[in-house]
Amino acid sequence: MSRLFEASVKDNRRLAENHYLLTFHPLKKIRRPEPGNFFMLSTGNGLDPLLKRPFSIHRRTGSDIRILYRVAGRGTDILSRKRPGDVLQIIGPLGNSFPVGRSRKNIILVAGGVGIAPVFALAEGLIASLKKPVLFYGAKTGSGLLCIEELNSIGIETHICTDSGDTGRKGPVTAILREFIQGNPSVSEDCCIYACGPEPMLRSLSALAAEYGLRGYAALEQNMACGIGACLGCIVNTTGGYKRVCREGPVFPMNEILW
């Protein structure tokens, strides 16, 4: 089953300022993506923008795939103008996925901003397999908190916070999580954190996890040209040397990343 395929846009809707939810329908059967996997999507049809852009899977509905994205530059701006029926060139699913093989009692999910995209996929999968993860979700302001209704509909315990304090608790997500851990000492037994968000959030989360001796995994983002391990553009510095976000990642054990 080739991971190079075409898909037609089914829906592409604005969720909040600069944030969109794209649903595409693969025009042939593709491999089943796992939470943490990503796809490389063409944006324009010509030579500029040139490269495909990586997006993690947000949701799978039947054979359709949903991508939650922020408009961050020209490529994503062009993507945000796609209409139903438009055809995209796609490679994927690519990369590794969140390792959830072993059953764990306490699963903590942490997301910052559009980092909710892969974390939601993971949450949905965990709940489907009758686990009870707890989500800590932060953004700069309430308008940056995405898919709150979807989160409510899957019934996950969610702790919301914003930097501005206009929605949920005021403060960084790591501070809210720290309080939670302090208030629930049993949490640290057989616990695992899965996270995606901006680098400063992941860095302080990684420090928090180390402080309490918690295991954790983070899905990373990096510029990449090919997505298949050839360009060596998307490396991250780890305790084991430079690793490719597209192949050895995008999910890495937090304690291996040299922030």
């Binding site: 030579l47 500029d48 923008p49 040139l50 490269l51 490529g75 990096q222 510029n223 990449m224 040209a225 360009c231 060596l232 553009g233 998307c234 490396i235 991250v236 510095n237 430079y242």
Partner: peptide
């Protein structure tokens, strides 16, 4: 090779500084 970021897209092209990894 070089530290990240190593690549950036430019009009109809890209810059790379992989550094012969």
């Amino acid at each position: 090779g070089n530290p990240p970021p190593r690549i950036v897209e430019t009009p109809a092209g890209m810059l790379n500084a992989v550094g012969l990894q």
